[in-house]
């Protein structure tokens, strides 16, 4: 597969108080790649997501997206560049309906301002209709079309995770960050999630995911990055990671062989 680099982290680090949460981490995500980030709790995975999406600013190092430095940009600008995400602890707009949640994802790619909206100009009405139909299409893509008019807060967790994915996809990202998308899902839901991740890649969107479900990770990921105590421990295709002695010692342990 010939591909170019989409996201590149170079010696990225951040500390909170005295604690070095992420230490000189460097890795890359190629276009069209599914990459997984694994490591024990507290290894710095979610922190890394927050650094990439601009929720946190790194103390040192560089984060490049499509050849351009993005560290320190506000989150909404990074979303505009083409990075979207889901959250480990689901962050939906609970008082809004399912389809409205996805429609917020279209915010970036549409432009009706206050005046156009207040006056209900014809072009803004057309745009609004397009936003709705595109959003319904994304709901269809993740399989939530039946729940479009329910309140987001009333969905079961599995559906909420899917809705977060649909909302993130609606921003038309080039790179999608999934933070533990399988947490709280049952076996069939996890199976469907796996297919969904492949379908997302098939649309030309790269995926970087944090996941504790090892069988899922090993099946979907092209490459895996292992973090431990904020440091990069190993990087490579799933086969190599499974055999990597340091990884086995630090994280996977003996139990993993049984899974």
């Amino acid at each position: 597969m010939t591909s170019s680099t989409l996201l590149a982290l170079e010696a990225v680090g951040i500390s909170f108080g005295g604690l070095q949460a992420v230490k000189k981490v460097s890795f890359q995500v190629q276009e069209g790649q599914i990459k997984a980030l694994i490591g024990p709790n507290g290894a710095g995975k979610t922190t890394l997501f927050n650094l990439i999406t601009g929720m946190l600013r790194p103390d040192h190092g560089e984060i490049r997206f499509q050849e351009q430095a993005i560290q320190g940009l506000p989150p909404f600008r990074i979303a505009d560049r083409g990075i979207s995400r889901t959250f480990q602890i689901v962050q939906l707009f609970g008082h809004m309906t399912v389809v409205e949640n996805v429609m917020v994802g279209r915010h970036l790619r549409t432009r009706a301002g206050l005046l156009a909206a207040a006056l209900r100009l014809p072009w803004s009405r057309r745009e609004e209709a397009a936003i709705r139909s595109q959003s319904l299409a994304w709901l269809d893509f993740v399989g939530l079309q039946d729940r479009a008019d329910d309140y987001a807060a009333n969905l079961p967790l599995g559906h909420q995770r899917l809705l977060e994915i649909a909302r993130a996809l609606a921003t038309e990202p080039k790179l999608l960050l999934l933070d533990e998308p399988a947490a709280g899902l049952d076996m069939t839901e996890t199976e469907r999630l796996k297919e969904l991740i492949f379908a997302i890649r098939a649309r030309g969107i790269s995926v970087l995911l944090v996941e504790h479900d090892m069988s899922l990770t090993m099946e979907v990921a092209d490459e895996i990055v292992v973090l431990d105590h904020g440091e990069l421990l190993a990087e490579g295709p799933p086969r190599d990671i499974q055999r990597h002695p340091a990884v086995i010692a630090a994280y996977l342990g003996r139990d993993w062989e049984k899974e």
Partner: peptide, 17 residues
């Protein structure tokens, strides 16, 4: 819609651009 989104979760609204 964006305003209501900010009200419910400013973090998520920011991440959605």
């Amino acid at each position: 819609r964006a305003l209501r989104a900010i009200h419910d979760s400013e973090t998520a609204a920011l991440a959605m651009g």
